[in-house]
Design a protein around this nucleic acid. Structure first.
Length: 737
RNA sequence: GCGCGUUUAGCUCAGUUGGUUAGAGCGUGCGAUUCACAUUCGCAAGGUCGCAGGUUCGAUUCCUGCAACGCGCACCA
């Protein structure tokens, strides 16, 4: 027996070495898996001769913005467990890793750093220099993240690693943009968008976070009417007063009627507008509209073809239309406008009011709706090459047809609900880091020629659109851009659609739906068959981990302190899909002890079976051992079912319980007597049972706790070839259930 | 406002299609332990399965209503 077993299991001495062993074997790459077991050609199942027994997952690419957190650790643990399980089952298994450039997040992070150290803005540096800085940061951050992903034991194929902004993915992005433009799905137009004054860019509806704000609702005199607003500082240009056509209180006022009245900065002429969008119950049932800075107002103005005027600039300051208030920040202007309204006798009353304030997810900036010329994806346009279905319909059908299953199932309702409310997707961003919009303009007198293409146009005078694309545009292509699209590669044919997309539920709308959209459009198929959504990892008391609370747990610290396996097991057990999970050092410590328990189980079995070889076909078990063998078999069948049905939380717990409280506590204890006082037959039977059980336990636990199981396996079996590694050993329940 | 989820032991949570005495980990109490175990083992205490109805031979599980908490979406000036 190896001397190592005389000491407790030491993860920090083991894990790096074992990972290296796996990596050097080449088996992370499915092309290198031993042909005999992994490439049964099943032309009957998959016409064209491709291997039907293949399994693929693309890794949700971590952002190159920071370091690995517990959410990543959970994602990696679940996916690695799936991948290792399938690999052992003999599937040609690909787990394709990568990272995301995370445009806004990365750019704002670097901007902040530069401002801190040099007091310079990106404009001080210029586009080219700034991008150099971002790329340097991204590179460094990438290296950190990747090494941390490896620390978690991820058996991903690094030879296929991708980055959302590398040349191949950029080609995919430009190709997609061009195709969608040609099909009329991508268009450019003046629309009201979410403007983030802090980040100096538009953002999509999904990048908004609403925060409750206690504020004041001001009632003001507007000629014969009383109007209510929480934002008096935007009202300078309001020259249209709206009410519901059926509102009896205002039946004497006709649509289009002109009314002269005294307003903030002097007399104006207002026009009456009747529109059904007005809520008669709210306030006085009358409102003025500010089409440039409010979506609902914008829509009313569109319906009635009303002029629109900008009141607030891109930095949140008032424009000359505000008269004496021009140049002020809106927060400052509000108080002064209120005072003036009081002075002029236009203020009727003030009421406390609670509403939701829209803020930018990444920068925290307060969103100011603005009308801007932007690029959009039309989600309601019939697509000729997709049987005249719209993108909305494509997304809806993918899940309604059960071509995609979402776990847990109730998220399917949330998914449909989201699609119903979906508006055109604004994809252009006024930031510098990211995929530049592949559109070039050339002026011919007053006309502008537009070129949309993959390559830079030839000839002089072309200027590229300054904007970049929403980072989710490139992430939306992830399942197929990573496999080589737009080229028709063997990988694409073999591994797409992927089998599982495993990610956090908070990212369902950002990412999962956009992959379904992009893939449905580009390939006419689904990007994956199953979506497994995991919950948020919280602290031991169920609080969100945050810097300010200081309650964060760093997966890399955990790996050092307790071992990666302990952290992985703690993340798996009791963690059902879609539900948040609490994790504490106490829980992790428990699984560190489990790794050590397994270590000692191995020591006991090896020590007590000296001279006995594991006989694969042994069947001369005593009746008692035959019963134990049947129980073990039933358990493994059960666990295999759990694995195939994504009940990892349950499979892992059952194995933990069996290994510790059945095998160790009962069977090993009982074996002490048999091995000393039993007959030769009894001893032989029991030794075989112990050897077989250790062998199988190591195999089935390997997907969850790969390091300690592989280490024991290596010390015990001392395999002469890399094919003898536990990582590629055969799953003990042979048939797929 | 619309929708979704949760409510089970002191704490954190499981409980797959309704079926014996409802489970785990941690914690607590008692005992054992140089014999695989940087510890471990044995035993024990502890639950009206949120509340009220309904379906059923039988409900923690299915249905309805209510309550508390959490989340998502939308938003009214």
């Amino acid at each position: 027996m190896n001397e190592k077993f005389l000491k407790p299991y030491n993860p920090s001495e083991t894990e790096g070495r074992i990972y290296k062993l796996w990596e050097e074997s080449g088996f992370f790459n499915p092309d290198n898996l031993p042909a005999k077991r992994y490439t049964p050609v099943r032309t009957d199942v998959h016409p064209g001769g491709l291997d039907a027994r293949r399994f693929s997952i693309v890794m949700p690419p971590p952002n190159v913005t920071g370091v690995l957190h517990m959410g990543h650790a959970l994602m990696l643990t679940l996916e690695d467990s799936m991948v290792r399980f399938k690999r052992m089952q003999g599937f040609k298994t690909l787990w394709l890793p990568g990272t995301d450039h995370a445009a806004i997040a990365t750019q704002s992070r670097v901007e902040k750093d530069i401002y801190k150290s040099e007091k310079k803005s990106r404009h001080d540096l210029g586009r080219e220099e700034f991008l150099k800085r971002v790329e340097a940061f991204a590179k460094q951050s990438h290296d950190t993240i990747i090494s941390q992903v490896k620390t978690m034991g991820a058996s991903a194929d690094w030879s296929r690693e991708a980055f959302t902004l590398d040349p191949k993915r950029s080609l995919a992005v430009r190709t997609m943009f061009k195709e969608m433009y040609a099909d009329g799905l991508i268009y450019r137009g003046h629309r009201i968008v979410n403007w983030d004054p802090k980040g100096q860019t538009t953002i999509s509806d999904d990048e908004i976070v609403y925060q409750e704000e206690k504020t004041v609702l001001y009632y003001m005199k507007y000629g014969p009417f009383t109007i209510a607003t929480s934002r008096p500082e935007t009202k300078f240009g309001d020259k249209h007063v709206c009410m519901h056509p059926k509102d009896e209180r205002y039946r004497d006022y006709k649509d289009g009627q002109k009314i002269d009245l005294e307003w903030i900065n002097g007399p104006i002429t207002a026009t009456v507008i009747k529109d059904e969008a007005i809520d008669m119950e709210f306030g006085s049932g009358v409102m003025t509209i500010t089409p440039w800075h409010d979506r609902a107002d914008f829509e009313i103005a569109e319906r009635h073809k009303l002029p629109r005027e900008q009141v607030i600039d891109e930095y949140g300051k008032l424009l000359p239309i505000a008269g004496e208030f021009a140049g002020m920040k809106i927060t400052e202007a509000r108080q002064k406008v209120v005072r003036k309204l009081h002075d002029k006798g236009l203020m009727v009353k003030e009421e406390p009011y609670t509403h939701n304030l829209a803020t930018a997810e990444r920068t925290g900036g307060i969103i100011e709706p603005q009308i801007k010329l932007q690029w959009f994806i039309d989600v309601n346009k019939p697509i000729a090459k997709r049987k005249n279905k719209t993108l909305k319909e494509i997304m809806h059908e993918a899940v309604a047809s059960e071509n995609i299953k979402i776990l847990p199932e109730h998220f399917e309702k949330t998914y449909f609900h989201w699609i119903e409310n979906l508006r055109d997707w604004c994809i252009s961003r006024q930031i510098w880091y990211g995929h530049r919009v592949p559109v070039w303009y050339k002026k011919h007198g007053t006309d502008t020629e537009v070129y949309v293409g993959i390559e830079v146009p030839t000839g002089d005078g072309w200027k590229q659109d300054p904007d970049t694309l929403d980072t989710w545009f490139s992430s939306g292509l992830w399942t197929f851009s990573t496999l080589g699209w737009p080229e028709k590669t063997k990988d694409l044919e073999l591994y797409h659609p992927t089998d599982v997309l495993e990610t956090g539920y908070e990212i369902l709308f950002f990412w999962v739906v956009r992959m379904i959209l992009m893939t449905g459009y580009a390939l006419g198929e689904v990007p994956f068959k199953t979506v497994y959504l995991h919950g948020t990892v919280r602290d031991g008391q169920g609080r969100k981990m945050s810097k300010s609370l200081g309650n964060g747990i760093d997966p890399i610290d955990i790996a050092k302190k307790f071992g990666t396996d302990a952290g992985r097991m703690a993340l798996i057990v009791g963690n059902t899909p879609g539900t948040d999970t609490n994790i504490s050092e106490d829980k992790i410590r428990g699984y560190k002890n489990f790794a050590n328990k397994l270590w000692n189980i191995a020591r006991f079995v090896i020590e007590n079976t000296k001279g006995e070889e594991l006989l694969p076909d042994f069947s001369a078990y005593t009746p008692a051992d035959a019963t134990l063998r049947q129980e073990r078999h039933d358990l493994l069948v059960d666990v295999t079912k759990d694995m195939e049905n994504y009940r990892f939380y349950m499979g892992a717990e059952k194995l933990y319980h069996y290994a510790w409280h059945t095998f160790a506590d009962k069977i090993l204890e009982e074996s002490k007597g048999i091995l000393q006082g039993g007959t030769a037959e009894e001893q032989k039977s029991r030794k075989q049972f112990l050897l077989h059980t250790l062998d199988k336990i190591l195999k089935v636990l390997h997907p969850f706790i790969p390091f300690v199981t592989e280490e024991i396996w290596q010390l015990w079996k001392n395999p002469s070839t890399k094919e003898g590694m536990l990582m590629v050993a055969e799953w003990p329940i042979s048939k797929s259930l």
